[in-house]
Structures are given as C-alpha cells and as structure tokens.
Amino acid sequence: MTGWLPELAVAILATVLAITLHEAAHGYAALALGDDTAQREGRLSLNPLRHVDRVGTIMLPGFLLAVQMLTIGRVEAMFGWAKPVPVNVWKLRNPRYGMVLVAAAGPAMNVFLAWCAAMLGHPVEQMDGVLPPEALELMVRFIVLSIMANLLLALFNLMPIPPLDGGRILVGLLPAPLAAPLARLEPAGLVIVMLLIFVLPRLSEGLDPIGWISGFVMGSGFRTILWLAGHGA
C-alpha cells in the first residue's frame, strides 16, 4: 500500500467525524427545543453524506490534504465545514435563547469529541508493545488529528460573526439594539469571514485570526484537552 494512504485515511476520518457530529448536534438540539425542521428534511442524521458541502467538505479539505502531503509528507492540520442543518428559529419554544443553545451545541460537541479522542489515548498507551508499531502510530495520529480538527472547528465557529455559531450566540445574548444590527450582517457573514481569513493577514502579520486559532489549538488548547483527559501536565 502506498505509504501516505493510511495517513490520508485517518485524516479524512477525523475530519468527517468532527464535521458530521457538529451538524448533527445542531439538529438534535433544535429538536429537543421544539423545532423538527432538520428531522423532516432528513438532516437529523449521522450519515456524513447528508451533510456534505461541496466547498467545505470536499474542496477545501482536499486542497489542505494535497498541499500538506506534497510539501511536508504528512497531515498536520485539517479544516472544513458541512452544509448547515436547517433550523426554524420561530418553532423553538424560546426563539431567542433557544437559538443560543442550538448554535452552542455544535462547538460544544466538538470540544466533547476532542476530549473523547484524548481519553482514547489511555487504552492506546496500554497497547504499546502489543500492536505493531505502524498500527500504534496510526492510532496516535488519529487521536492527535481528532483533537486538532475538533478544536479548530469549535473555535472557528465561535468567531462572533453571523452565520457562524459565535455570531448567532452573540445575537441571542446582546440587548436588542445591539443584536439587531449584528443579525443584519448574516447575509454578508461568509464574505466577512473570508476577508478575515485571506485579506486581513496580508495587511498585517498581527491580524491573523486563523493563525491565532491554529496556534492556540496546537499549543495551550491541545495541552488543556490532554490535561482534562487525565494525561497530566
């Protein structure tokens, strides 16, 4: 088997799980709070194919995979997004604060999955000397990439710009005079996010939100998840 295929497989698996369960968490939270829109449209599913977004699920992760494999020969980070789960805010029992909980469910799921991946490290440690080194290394890579993918997805989505989860949380928590103008940004939200990602860092090295998020994930965020999972300091 080509040497990079197992690495590619674990990277794809970690990313797909992070994205799929993020979106499923939104749908299940909405259902619990009174909105069955996602259920009726067949999006209340753990089937990754139901959440595929052409750009966020296929093109961007594929580009990141190709660049990393061609330049450094391994996958160090992965990122993407899925097709948003439909939510009818007016069907929620408490539309304003219900939407806050629905929006928070996705990032919360990703933090939980990062912790679960770190917990998986305990049985993997016990397999040292039992499994072949190649298999053990792949399991460790899956754990590392799962932690990173989930933390990246959670923190990116918590950026305070609608339609990202952080923007919707902020709209629900701010007083109405401040929430209304922020909510009106939603149609242009993705354009604003793209400008922050691709244009702002070119204006100044200190203005790089994705660079800051990545640095946090690969530093103190990663160490914090390991500590919470009982791996010590």
Results as ranks from 00 to 15, higher is better:
residue 72 I to W: 02
residue 84 P to Q: 10
residue 99 M to K: 05
residue 90 W to F: 15
residue 93 R to W: 14
residue 62 G to F: 08
residue 99 M to R: 11
residue 64 L to F: 12
residue 81 W to S: 11
residue 73 G to H: 04
residue 72 I to S: 10
residue 100 V to I: 12
residue 90 W to E: 15
residue 48 P to H: 12
residue 51 H to P: 02
residue 39 Q to P: 00
residue 77 A to L: 15
residue 61 P to S: 08
residue 63 F to K: 01
residue 79 F to P: 07
residue 72 I to A: 04
residue 69 M to E: 02
residue 72 I to P: 01
residue 98 G to Q: 05
residue 40 R to P: 01
residue 45 S to I: 06
residue 98 G to N: 09
residue 45 S to W: 09
residue 58 I to Q: 05
residue 75 V to A: 10
residue 90 W to L: 14
residue 82 A to I: 09
residue 97 Y to L: 14
residue 48 P to S: 12
residue 59 M to K: 00
residue 79 F to N: 13
residue 55 V to L: 14
residue 89 V to F: 08
residue 56 G to P: 07
residue 86 P to A: 13
residue 68 Q to W: 03
residue 62 G to M: 09
residue 49 L to N: 01
residue 84 P to D: 09
residue 68 Q to F: 00
residue 80 G to Q: 05
residue 67 V to A: 12
residue 97 Y to A: 10
residue 58 I to H: 09
residue 105 A to T: 10
residue 59 M to P: 00
residue 48 P to I: 12
residue 100 V to P: 09
residue 80 G to F: 10
residue 71 T to N: 04
residue 78 M to R: 01
residue 75 V to D: 07
residue 103 A to Y: 08
residue 65 L to S: 02
residue 68 Q to V: 02
residue 69 M to T: 06
residue 88 N to A: 13
residue 70 L to C: 00
residue 103 A to K: 07
